[in-house]
Design a binder for these strands. Sequence first.
DNA 1: GCGACAG
DNA 2: ATCTTGTCGC
Length: 229
Amino acid sequence: MGTPKSVPSFDPALEGRLLAVQRKIASRVMLEDRFSLASVAGVDQSFVDDVVISAAVVLDPECSVLAEASSRQRTSFPYCPGYLFFREGPAAIKAVRALPFRPGLLFIDGCGINHPRRAGLASYIGVILDLPTIGVSKSVLCGSFDLPQAVGEAAPLRHEDSLVGYILKSQKGCRPIVVAPGHRISADSALEVVRCFLKDHKLPEPCRLAHEHARRLRVDLLRAGEAAL
DNA sequence: GCGACAG
DNA sequence: ATCTTGTCGC
């Protein structure tokens, strides 16, 4: 038996506005390569009820940490597949803006153009900040593909007759990850770049370190909470 | 009508 | 995402 997953359901008027926003974002997405690998930031979120904690960790090409920043704020928007930006986006953007400089590329935990309306979290953040972004996720929201077998192998992810990303077998014993362009980068380049930042883990270093940092901040917040009691 | 469904 | 024990493998 399994627990039913949340179902997307909004007030018609609200949904209309959300879809309009996504249409606008999708129309502004650029897939031409216009990024730099001098500084690559991973961005990820953790939660404590409706408090969103976002962490950004910037690495150089050798994966040395160049900078870190974070943000924390409440959200009233529920998790709903296809509308992730409205829940996690604001906090993520705030964390990136808190960095001491603008990274040459962002690795975002979530979809890019591999989204029903080509407006995943990564595309959204890329367009809003006018920064190159790649969406890295652990499961597929939409699209069809063949499972890659050997470690290092990638298979194209297609949705509505177009290539929207790749399914990459990043590590043995792990389910493959999903790599897709968010903004200002092509699908092929996104795959190539992610491979460059892949070490001995399932996720590329920027994502792994950002995830680690976000979780550490979550523990800190929980401990601060019980200390206040 | 019945599933599927980023984090 | 988060909640959680033990367990399989390098």
